[in-house]
Design a protein around this nucleic acid. Structure first.
Lengths: 244, 244
DNA sequence: CGCGTGCTTGAACATTATCAAACAGTGTGG
DNA sequence: CCACACTGTTTGATAATGTTCAAGCACGCG
């Protein structure tokens, strides 16, 4: 099992937008590069503008995409219009891959984006031909599932302030303190199961507590990362609870 | 893409607890049965009693399991003790498979359970040897991810009543009106991001509205499935909203 | 029969949503 | 270059939803 990438490594790889899929080193390196080369060959680069809908919920899934530049949102709607941002897609992320033939959510461009597009038959054929590629995507899916489950905890049991703190931490590339959010408050709210007003209120609260700084609405500086982490799991209350 | 199982089919397969993985018909049937036979060979049957912890969060993942009988819960905790039931595991479901080497959540037996246990090296080797098996689990993970994302919508945007209605519908095997919940109110509450009191209150509300009947606390009859479905998405309000 | 556990019910309270208004930043046209 | 409008964000007052705390109930078991 040591061959499997750890969560940290995978996340880092995604954020840096690596071109090569991280395959298990068990198989010879030559074959992994051949997969990458083949992926490149069957894919075509496409560009979309901000707010463009790339896939509509219920659409027949024709393509698999990989994000190269920009950010997208996967959204689901209830009949009365309530909206949920299932996930944000950043460089390195794939979408359009599913066991179903119909798109489970709408995909929209948050900013101008460039994607690599693969036709599903070609993509499927690649998986068929290269077991390591299949294994790689299996790992990707595991990682994705893990992220979704983390968010179940967030949505099910965290307060607004905790959700926001967690969100800022996961969005901030490790190391750098500054953070440019590509999405607006409405997207953040629907991602965290809150309203825009609540998001705004608690952001200003964090600012007043000197934990973050808002240079512009979307440019956030994490002044005290450790405080954020502590707030994101309500550690003050937890320490009281464990004292007896 | 027609070769991929639809969501409906996969769910049905899981509920019936099929032994054979559903593989893409693209590969010869002979080889699929050989995979199933091999899975059987490397697995050993184990039994646990109600409330037994099978995997602890943070443990090194040594085994992959498949549920044969009974129900389990996957739970995650916050430092102050708040609990979230990430998912319930029913016959046919797998767990213990991850891209990480450490368990992302604790797994506990909701009822007495029987599992098939595979060592991870053996399981990995099988994936290595049989590309179709890998492809099959990739589909499984897709399906799982899809279910998790459905729950993100539920936790992020649905009211208590809607959550409960959705829950009852997904727990009820299609066709049969009666439903025996293996888990208690506390598990349901942590699964739906509510408190036991709220779960109880809205169950009685549904009973008073003659939508369900509570024979015992855990034996629920869905009297009006259509009403439940409508309540689960707040269709009354939605129809008003679309009128203008 | 009495105890224990889990479920239900009630009343007060907390958190977040809703509604409404002010504000800031950006682009447009005079 | 400034006034204006437009959109997205912030702030405030009020209301709704679900939680918390507390008590009563029901079922199973010694």
């Amino acid at each position: 099992m040591t061959a499997l990438a750890t969560r940290q490594i995978s996340t880092a790889a995604r954020i840096q937008g690596t071109q090569l899929p991280r395959l298990r080193p068990v198989t010879p390196t030559a074959s992994t590069t051949s997969v990458a080369a083949e992926l490149e060959q069957i894919g075509s680069t496409v560009r979309y503008h901000r707010d463009k809908t790339i896939v509509e919920e219920g659409d027949r899934l024709i393509h698999v995409f990989k994000v190269t530049e920009g950010a997208l949102r996967a959204i689901r709607l209830l009949p009365d219009g309530r909206r949920c941002v299932t996930r944000f897609l950043l460089p390195g992320d794939f979408f359009g891959f599913s066991d179903d033939t119909e798109a489970p959510h709408t995909i929209e461009a948050v900013s101008d984006v460039t994607l690599v597009r693969y036709t599903r038959p070609a993509f499927e054929a690649l998986l068929e031909r290269h077991p390591q590629a299949c294994r790689h995507f299996l790992n990707l899916m595991c990682h994705e599932l893990s992220a979704a489950q983390e968010r179940l905890l967030l949505l099910g049991r965290k307060s607004a302030l905790e959700r926001l703190s967690s969100f800022l931490l996961t969005m901030a590339p490790k190391g750098s303190a500054a953070l440019m959010l590509p999405m607006n408050r409405s997207d953040v709210a629907d991602y965290l199961g809150l309203t825009v007003e609540t998001v705004s209120r608690f952001l200003t609260q964090l600012r007043n507590r000197r934990v973050i700084d808002l240079r512009t609405a979307n440019e956030i500086v994490l002044c005290d990362r450790e405080a954020l982490r502590s707030i994101s799991e309500n550690e003050i209350a937890a320490s009281h609870a464990t004292r007896h």
